[in-house]
C-alpha cells in the first residue's frame, strides 16, 4: 500500500483528521482527542501491530504525544500525533491495551511531560526520583542547578 492509498483509507474512517507528508517516508496524521482510541483500534486492525516509539512532545501551547507504528507484514510506517491544550492537568487516553509495548513508554512520557494516561494502572515516576518537582522535558522547565543553558 502506498502512502496516498493509505491516506485515502484513513481519511475515510473519521472526520477531522489532518493527513500530511504523502511524499515522505511515512504519513503524518494529527488525530483529535475524541476519536483517538477508535483511530488506534482501526489502525491495529489494519495491520499496524508494532508500536515503534511513543514520544512525548511539548508544542509550546499544547502538550502531546507522537506515535510511530509500523506494520510487521508490509513494513509501512505511520506517524500520528494527539494533542491536549491543558498544560495544568494534561490527560490523554492510554493505548497499552492496544499495543502492550506502550506500557513503559507511557510511564516515560508521564515522567518527562506530566501527561497522565487514562486507563494506565501504574502512573508513577519511572526515571526521575519520587517527589521530583516539575517535568524536565517541557520547554518551560527551569532548573538553575542542574541545567546548563546556552
Amino acid at each position: 500500500m502506498t502512502n496516498s492509498e493509505l491516506k485515502n483509507k484513513i481519511t475515510a474512517w473519521f472526520d477531522g483528521l489532518t493527513v500530511e507528508n504523502e511524499e515522505g517516508k511515512f504519513l503524518t496524521v494529527e488525530v483529535p482527542q475524541e476519536i483517538f482510541l477508535d483511530f488506534c483500534r482501526k489502525l491495529k486492525e489494519e495491520g499496524f501491530d508494532y508500536l515503534f516509539s511513543l514520544t512525548g512532545m511539548d508544542f509550546g501551547k499544547e502538550l502531546g504525544v507522537t506515535y510511530h507504528v509500523e506494520s510487521t507484514a508490509s513494513r509501512q510506517m505511520v506517524q500520528f500525533t494527539v494533542k491536549t491544550a491543558d498544560r495544568e492537568k494534561p490527560e490523554l487516553d492510554s493505548v497499552r491495551d492496544i499495543w502492550p509495548a506502550a506500557h513503559y513508554h507511557e510511564m516515560e512520557a508521564f515522567d518527562f511531560f506530566g501527561i497522565v494516561f487514562r486507563g494506565h494502572p501504574d502512573m508513577r515516576r519511572l526515571f526521575m526520583p519520587e517527589g521530583w518537582k516539575g517535568f524536565p522535558l517541557r520547554k518551560d522547565y527551569v532548573d538553575e542547578v542542574n541545567m546548563l543553558i546556552r
Partner: peptide, 20 residues
C-alpha cells in the same frame, strides 16, 4: 521544519532517532 526518523540495527536491535 518537519519530522525525521532514521532507524539502524545496533547490536541490541532497532535503534531509532526521531527529530521534530
Amino acid at each position: 521544519p518537519g519530522d525525521y526518523l532514521q532507524r539502524v540495527e545496533t547490536a541490541r536491535g532497532d535503534f531509532g532517532v526521531y527529530v521534530h
